[in-house]
């Protein structure tokens, strides 16, 4: 019997990958959240810390590697999800005239594809808003507390220096790369109520996606028993509500703080 062929084609294997990438992305969410929460640190200290963190996140090789794994996971999760959704539909070419799906399952569990699509759109817009802008767009630069001197990426203040083409120049000499001010980009961005609303909607979609997805991932991988599963389910529900809620508070906080 050709086991390997069945392995690639099987619905179950597609669900293993869905679960595996999904649960990995839950870990990613935790990391991302930890970084974002630095935006709550007030004043110059918070601004500097967040911008230093942005430098770290874009230059550290280990972070870079992890970011590629994350991108691949997101893409794989999305493509696998589309393939599974197509197979889902194929299995019932003709639907019921009258159906009450709410009688036996929660809405989230039946609409993971729709939620996933919303989340994907959210990710693309989010990447454009900050990641693309930070890397390739025009952004302000971090200034020292005296509000004049530029900073290098490593945090060094260059007194009397000026920024030319993203580099700190002092006495006609290029000293290093200037630290970008992502903090101000974020703060300015969230003065737009439409963007704030978009981010909150994105987080609501993630919350609904996780309410089903977290525990479903464990189920797909066969990780279920009478002792631990009730705990996993409770932890999953808490995760699904708390993590997106904390994410969503940031744009709201940024919007109302000025």
């Amino acid at each position: 019997m050709s086991k390997s062929k069945g392995l690639i084609k099987s619905h179950i294997v597609k669900k293993y990958w869905m679960a595996f990438t999904g649960l990995f992305l839950c870990l990613f969410l935790l990391g991302h959240l930890a970084g974002n929460l630095q935006l709550f640190i007030p004043g110059y200290k918070g601004q500097l810390q967040f911008n230093e963190y942005a430098v770290f996140m874009t230059t550290n090789p280990a972070v870079k590697l992890l970011s590629y794994v994350t991108y691949i996971s997101i893409l794989f999760h999305a493509i696998d999800g589309i393939v599974i959704s197509v197979n889902n539909k194929k299995a019932r070419p003709q639907g019921y005239a009258f159906s009450r799906p709410g009688a036996n399952s929660i809405w989230s569990s039946r609409n993971m594809g729709i939620l996933g699509t919303i989340i994907f759109v959210y990710i693309v817009v989010h990447m454009q808003n900050f990641w693309y802008l930070y890397k390739f767009g025009e952004v302000p630069y971090q200034k020292a507390e005296d509000n004049l001197s530029p900073l290098l990426n490593d945090g060094t203040v260059v007194k009397g220096g000026e920024i030319i083409n993203g580099e700190v120049v002092s006495n006609g000499e290029v000293i290093g790369i200037a630290m970008k001010d992502l903090y101000t980009v974020v703060l300015d961005g969230f003065q737009n109520p439409v963007l704030v609303a978009f981010y909150v909607i994105g987080m609501v979609a993630i919350a609904f996606h996780l309410v089903h997805g977290f525990q479903s991932g464990f189920q797909s991988l066969g990780l279920r028993n009478k002792k631990y599963s009730p705990m996993i389910n409770k932890a999953g529900f808490a995760f699904a509500i708390l993590v997106p809620a904390l994410f969503a508070i940031i744009p709201i906080y940024m919007f109302i703080r000025l």
């Binding site: 099987s10 179950i12 669900k15 194929k90 299995a91 799906p101 009688a103 036996n104 399952s105 189920q219």
Partner: peptide, 24 residues
């Protein structure tokens, strides 16, 4: 391996873990 393979060959869909089956 064989039972899962046969079920998929028959055209039954993937499991979305909605839990509807258990309820019904």
């Amino acid at each position: 391996l064989n039972m899962v393979k046969q079920a998929e060959k028959e055209g039954f869909g993937p499991c979305s873990n909605t839990g509807a089956c258990e309820v019904e």
